[in-house]
Structure formats: C-alpha cells, structure tokens
C-alpha cells in the first residue's frame, strides 16, 4: 500500500476507535499553573496510524498519557476521550485498569528504563496476560514466547528468560511492543518509539508496528518529533504546538503543502528526500516553545513566526479547513502559507 492509498482508505472509515475531543490538561506547580494541553481533538480510525508531531514540550506526551488516565493525580484534565464510544475521562481507576494494557497499550521512548531490570522479559510480558486474560503463569510464558517471535526476536524460547540488560536496545523495544500487543489492544500509543534507538534499528521497529497494524488491525498513535518517522509510517498527521493542534492532514497533503507556518518551519528544519542538499538549506525555527500558565487567546506561535502581525496577537486562529479541495486538511493560522513550500522558504530567507 502506498501512502496515498493508506490515506484514502483511512478517510473512508467513519467511526473512530478513539475519539479525543477538546482535551485540556494543566498541572499546578510550585511556580503556578502550567497548561500542557489546550483543547486537543483527534480521531483514530480502526487500523489507522496517526502521527503526532511537534517539538519537545509541546504537549504530545501529556496528551498520550492522558488517553488512558496515566497522568499523576495532580493533573487537571477536562474534555473527552472515548474508546469505541465509552468515555474514559473521569472514569474510575478500576475501570481504567481494565482498559490499560488490554484495550489501550503503550510503548515508551526508553526501552532500557521502561522495562523492569529485575524481572525476566517473559515474566513482564506474561504479567499482562495473567492480569487481563487470567492465564496461568505457565500459559502466559508460552504465549510470551509466541509474542516474542511475532515481533521478530530470534530464538524467542531462549530470550524469554533473559533480563532486559541482556538484550540490545532494538530487542528491548521489540519486547515492549510484544508486551503492548499481548492482549490484542484496539489502540496502541507509541510515545517516541524509535527516538532512543540507532537509525538502522529504527526502521526495523517501524516495520514491526506496520506489520501489527496490517495483521491485527491495531490503530496506532505514534508520537514523535521526527518527521522522518511520520513520513515512514503515518496515514495522517497531527501537528502540535504549545499544547494546541495547529494543523491536521493526511500525511501526503501535509508534506506536499503545509499550511501552518509552524508546520512549514518544521519541514524546512528536517531533511526530506527530493530536496537538494546543495541548494535547499535546513532552516532553524528561531526561539523556543513557550511555557504557559494560562492559554491566551492569541496565536502562541506569533513570536516565532515570520508572517505574524497584529491580528495573530489579538485572537487565536481556529482550526479550520484550509482548502476547498481537501476537507481533511485543517490548520489554525491567520496567515497560512499561500502555495507550495518553496515560497515558505523564500519567506524564511
């Protein structure tokens, strides 16, 4: 399947497995309130891979963690997260526990620290099955071997008794994936799944995720700051900035025509195939993601934006369909990039 076909296929599916609506998260801290996520909405269709991209600190991980209620108790959460129509925000812990690991599973960035160093990988995979499928320890271990084979770990029967430190980084991440898919979850949230890994290993991990989607029909939310990962695996993309969704589109549309100035900046900051190293130079977006105590009713990107004017600092642009041609392409920008990217780069220079 090409990326275009995938995008097309995804767009035709109506009912999403996971529907996030107007999700906001803030944390009280010593120095006051910190707003991490502000009014995020996104859908995940069955078998769809959605990429969520943005700089560090833009609220990607907080969004991911809040989906299954994994944020610390101090977090203030509002909005709605529905899994197959069932509301998860504000649900009792006991009910959420039955969802975690069974319906919604997670893969984290650091496979070294995310696995318990004193338990064998077989035990850690088996644990999920013992909890959710009421399997015996013996049965869970046997299933763990199958799962390790499924995620492409050679001689799984031996590896199942290994401890995390005996495995390579890539293998550890495969173990994490095996653990995540053990109960056949409907949604897999992969938070920076390849960031801590070597480039050569990254491709393998992404391939495993793609295989799982194709074979098990799992919907995957991939969170990354790496546009290469998005281009490689995602059907659709959500771009986040300072806690807000600033652009949402099918992956091909986004790469072909970014509307939001921030997306355009991100694209010019990362190398993409087809650009000439000699003529097109990588652009840096000046400045940093702001830390906000309250989300102001302005465009929070304005201070770093080459096209910002008075209007951007007066009211926040809504997330709207940008072009008549594609109803699935939304951006929140008062001054979207007019036409293909060369112009954007012109503006940056």
């Amino acid at each position: 399947m090409t990326t275009a076909e995938r995008a097309g296929a995804a767009a035709t599916v109506a009912t999403p497995v996971l529907a996030v609506r107007d999700l906001s998260v803030s944390f009280p801290t010593e120095t006051g309130n910190v707003s991490a996520v502000d009014g995020v909405s996104l859908d995940l269709a069955p078998g769809e891979i959605v990429g969520m991209v943005g700089e560090s600190g833009c609220g990607k991980s907080v969004t991911a963690m809040s989906i299954a209620g994994l944020l610390p108790g101090s977090a203030r959460i509002s909005g709605s997260v529905r899994l197959n129509g069932t509301e998860l925000v504000g649900t009792r812990e006991a009910a959420l526990r039955r969802v975690r690991g069974k319906e919604i599973a997670y893969i984290f960035q650091e496979p070294m620290t995310s696995l318990n160093p004193v338990l064998t990988v077989g035990r850690q995979i088996g644990e999920v099955l013992q909890v959710h499928e009421r399997m015996s320890r013996r049965a869970a271990r046997a299933r763990a071997v199958e799962l390790l084979t499924l995620v492409g770990i050679p001689s799984a029967a031996k590896r199942v008794d290994n401890y995390p430190h005996q495995l390579s980084g890539g293998m550890r991440q495969r173990v994490m994936i095996a653990m995540a898919v053990a109960c056949g979850p409907k949604v897999l949230v992969a938070d920076e799944p390849t960031t801590a890994l070597d480039v050569t290993v990254q491709a393998g991990i992404l391939q495993v995720l793609r295989d799982l989607r194709d074979r098990l029909g799992t919907s995957i939310l991939v969170i990354t700051h790496d546009l290469g990962v998005i281009a490689d695996i995602a059907d659709r993309v959500v771009v986040m900035y300072a806690g807000r969704v600033v652009e949402r589109a099918a992956v091909t549309d986004l790469f072909a025509h970014p509307y939001h100035r921030y997306t355009a900046g991100l694209l010019s900051a990362s190398p993409t195939p087809g650009r000439h190293a000699g003529t097109d130079r990588l652009q840096e977006i000046p400045g940093l993601v702001p830390v906000l105590s309250v989300q102001p009713d302005v465009c929070t990107f304005a201070d770093r934006c080459p096209a910002a004017d008075g209007r951007c600092r007066e009211s926040a642009p809504p997330l709207e369909v940008v072009a008549a041609g594609s109803t699935d392409h939304l951006a929140a920008c008062w001054h979207p990039c007019p036409s293909p990217r060369s112009d954007v780069e012109e503006a940056h220079r």
Partner: peptide, 26 residues
C-alpha cells in the same frame, strides 16, 4: 517515579501489584 513503574501502570496492573512486584522489588 521510574519508567518501569509507569510501564507497569500502563499494563493495567493493580496498585498493589505495581508496588510489590515492581517498585518494592527494585
């Protein structure tokens, strides 16, 4: 506050199991 305890919670383990099997063992 470690990552593996976060993983254990994400797996849907009961608090008691998270504490005894994962946090206390370490």
């Amino acid at each position: 506050s470690s990552d593996y305890v976060r993983t254990a919670k994400a797996k849907g383990l009961r608090p008691r199991a998270v504490i005894t099997q994962h946090a206390l063992r370490n």
